[in-house]
Simulated scan of single mutants.
Amino acid sequence: MPARGLEGSRAPRWRLRPTAAWALAPAAAVLAAFWLLPLAHLIVLGGQARDAAGSGYWQVLGSAQYLGSLAQTCLLAAVVTMASLLVGGITGVFLARQRFFGRSTLVALLTFPLAFPGVVVGFLVILLAGRQGLFAMLGLKIAGERWVFAYSLAGLFLGYLYFSIPRVILTVMAACESLDRSLEEAAQSLGASPWRVVNDVIIPGLAPALVSCGAICFATSMGAFGTAFTLGTQLNVTPVAIYNVFTNYANFTVAAALSVVLGALTWAVLLLARRMVRQSGTVL
Rank of each mutant, 00 (worst) to 15 (best):
V107E: 14
D51F: 02
L128G: 10
D51W: 06
F112R: 00
L124M: 14
A53Q: 14
R131F: 05
L75R: 13
F100C: 01
A143G: 11
G46C: 00
L86T: 15
L106A: 11
A108M: 06
L134T: 14
L138N: 00
A108F: 02
F135C: 12
K141G: 09
L134W: 15
A53K: 12
S69A: 15
G68Y: 04
V121G: 00
R99Q: 14
G130M: 03
G89I: 03
S63Q: 05
R131I: 03
R103P: 03
F94Q: 05
G62R: 04
V87R: 07
V107K: 02
G68E: 06
M82C: 15
I126G: 04
T73Y: 00
Y57Q: 00
L75M: 07
L85G: 10
V120N: 02
L85N: 06
L110K: 03
R131N: 12
L106S: 10
V93A: 01
D51R: 03
K141A: 14
L128W: 11
L109G: 07
F112A: 15
L85A: 08
S69N: 13
S69K: 02
V60T: 11
L86D: 02
L70D: 08
V119I: 15
G68T: 09
G54K: 01
G47I: 01
L140Q: 15
Q98F: 05
I126S: 10
G68M: 04
M82F: 15
A49C: 06
G88W: 08
R131D: 12
S104W: 06
F100M: 01
P117H: 08
Q48I: 11
R131W: 08
Q132Y: 11
S69T: 13
A78I: 09
T81W: 01
F112Y: 12
G88R: 02
Q48H: 12
A53F: 03
A143R: 07
M82L: 15
T111I: 10
G144C: 05
A115D: 02
L134V: 15
Q98S: 10
R50Q: 14
Q98T: 09
F101T: 13
Q48S: 11
G139W: 05
L95Q: 05
S55F: 05
L109A: 14
